[in-house]
Amino acid sequence: MFPKLDPILHSELRLAVMSILAGADEADFTYLKKQTGATSGNLSVQIDKLASAGYIEVEKGFKGKMPRTACRITPAGQEAFKSYVEALKEYLSAGK
């Protein structure tokens, strides 16, 4: 029996955001947008979904006079990401 893949993470853009945040202390919205190539609207929606699931924290503030949205992964997000990768590995090893 295969573990069910987390539907929150099994989406291209959300997974890309989580992959960036899993390896960084935090990343701002502009950086995530540049790295994923997503539109601002699309990225905002996916960030909200990740935040609602408790996988990331979003902090809105200012850097100088410019507004800045910083995102960072939560311990629950780290755990979910780890479980997701383990599940993927199981799928792949079963397919061999």
Partner: peptide, 14 residues
């Protein structure tokens, strides 16, 4: 990047 694109396990790991 599309949010709902179906991905295989291989693509996700990649």
């Amino acid at each position: 990047m599309e949010q709902n694109k179906e991905m295989t396990a291989q693509q996700s790991l990649q």
